[in-house]
């Protein structure tokens, strides 16, 4: 059970059901935008962040790496991110390890 102050971001509902690409030139629903406009503000509030991936379709490595691995490149510590970001992915739980791997790789 997450703490009451947890910020929940539903990728499909709050962002877009069809995220695509790494950079803004790749489309409106790119990983950099999700990172900068959704994840970073939530993390800066200092609260745990739950990201619900269920409902989003076709999540590609480029999108996920830029969104989550990119957090390390914009200044967050990998260790801090791994403890504060909770990934919810009931339909495909493999995304949890994948995203944690991207964060670790970016921090190594």
């Amino acid at each position: 059970m997450l703490a009451a102050m947890t910020t929940t971001i539903r990728l499909a509902a709050d962002f877009n059901p069809f995220p695509f690409g790494r950079y803004p030139s790749h489309g409106d629903w790119n990983g950099q935008r999700f990172r900068d406009e959704w994840l970073v503000p939530a993390l800066k509030r200092g609260e745990p962040v739950e990201v619900d991936l269920d409902g989003a379709r076709g999540l590609s490595p480029s999108f996920l790496e830029e969104a989550f691995g990119g957090l390390v490149r914009v200044g967050f510590a990998a260790k801090d991110l791994l403890s504060r970001i909770h990934i919810k992915s009931d339909r495909d739980p493999s995304f949890i390890d994948t995203i944690q791997g991207y964060i670790r790789d970016a921090g190594s």
Binding site: N16, P19, G21, G27, D28, G58
Partner: peptide, 11 residues
């Protein structure tokens, strides 16, 4: 480049 939502089309 510049397409707003390629992911919806590949879907």
């Amino acid at each position: 480049k510049g397409d707003p939502s390629p992911g919806a089309r590949t879907f």
